[in-house]
Write a protein that binds this DNA or RNA. Structure first.
Lengths: 244, 244
DNA sequence: AAAAATAACTGATTTATGTCAGTTTTTATC
DNA sequence: GATAAAAACTGACATAAATCAGTTATTTTT
């Protein structure tokens, strides 16, 4: 089996049985019966990626999907002029790379680890079998795609109509929603660069820096290096123009 | 059964057997067996909408999906300031309203007929049954969602990185791809207003007017009222910065 | 621990595109 | 067929955000 750019990792067998996501019940795979689980465990491989390493690359052929066990991942596309646009963020228990597998096309985006990240690689044949055999699973896949599509079409509208200030506020809220906060309950649990924040909001690094320091001046956030602490979430929501 | 805003149409039974999309084989429903077809035909209703009429509205609860038999439909969202953003276009043989049904949420966008449009309304129970019973059908649904998601995430990148001129060029190419051309082989088979073109490209009416007349000056298109005739498609692709 | 590279930040300037305010043309309505 | 309404168009002007050109601070590498 060809593991492409994963070859630098020592492949190891993975167990779903003791995977925390299965135990807690927040995984796509909770609906599987014993036989299906055994088949899954037999076929999957656990891989680890260091911060900055690419999990899969735009243009490559997909052979399976990745279930994130721990860590953080960004899904991004490179535009004509070589500028990155982050189109989605993923965390543990999320599936990445599934869209290309399901539509049988090459990856149209790149997945990169934002932190030390452990993933389970699941060959596509296993996924297709599960969709065929297990209606609950296939409905979960459909639900996943539907949610991503909703989010994406919402983002199209925001990109077209909102100002950069609103989009940066929204990006901060997205980061909080996706990666949560540290023990203090308000510092965002991710260390993106100003450039990456710009690439979520669809602006330049300079503008993202300026707007973050504006938010600081307006007492909406606190900044300490890469750490962003939300001190007035209400105002952040208002700045982002979100009312739901 | 509550047909909501469709009440002004005379409901009539529809037949899939003689639907041109089934005959030609370009429908989602081609994989159904005889029994499934009979069930579908029994449950569906054919409805017609005049140009400008709303098929379903952002915020409403979905009870089924719409399969377009003939006509043209735009899917749009209204932004904070009340401005429309067109997120998708649909033509005959396309399914609309399915995303909300599948994820069990209310419509997050509005579907409006761009022309006299005939649709088949399919109650959601029928769709869920088909997904359960027919793997080919559920894979087709997954394929549909995957394609829409790919297109949407690509549009996010374009919105963030391309200039209005490129996005308008792209909008014209999208219109051609979706609605085709008239008998002369080069005039786009749709009559969108400048405002609607602006709302696809994410710009203002004035800017869309100006750029269309720029394209005319540059001998890329011909303009006659709402008709747009492509006279240099290569140049249009180059202007849109599309290379695939 | 020093050197090199990357990221963060700041100010000045430019530019693409939006806004406003109007006229003309087309389409819809009575 | 007249009147009203909507859409198309044009020019002047305003402005949000990009670009450019730096300095300072923080990581990473050797």
């Amino acid at each position: 089996m060809n593991f492409g750019n994963m070859a630098y990792n020592k492949d190891k067998k993975a167990s779903c049985t003791d995977c925390s996501h299965k135990i807690v019940g927040d995984s796509m795979f909770c609906s599987l019966d014993l036989k299906q689980f055994e088949e899954l465990e037999d076929k999957l491989r656990c891989l680890t990626f260091k911060k900055g390493q690419v999990i899969f690359n735009e243009g490559n052929q997909p052979y399976g999907v990745y279930c994130i066990k721990s860590g953080k991942v960004k899904i991004s596309k490179i535009g004509e002029e070589g500028k990155e646009q982050i189109v989605r963020l993923a965390r543990d228990a999320n599936l990445v790379g599934y869209r290309s597998v399901l539509s049988g096309t090459s990856y149209y985006a790149t997945a990169t680890a934002l932190d030390e990240t452990e993933v389970c690689y699941i060959p596509k044949a296993v996924i297709f079998n599960l969709i065929k055999e297990n209606t609950t699973f296939s409905m979960a896949v459909i639900g996943l795609l539907s949610d991503d599509l909703k989010r994406a079409e919402n983002k199209i509208t925001n990109m077209a109509q909102k100002h950069v200030r609103e989009r940066i506020a929204e990006a901060i809220l997205l980061l909080k929603e996706c990666y949560g906060v540290t023990d203090d309950g308000k510092t965002i649990n991710s260390n993106l660069t100003r450039r990456e924040i710009a690439n979520i909001a669809g602006t330049t690094t300079e503008t993202s820096i300026r707007i973050l320091s504006e938010f600081h001046k307006d007492k909406i956030i606190e900044l300490n290096g890469k750490d962003i602490t939300i001190i007035n979430e209400d105002k952040l929501f208002k700045t982002a123009n979100i009312f739901d």
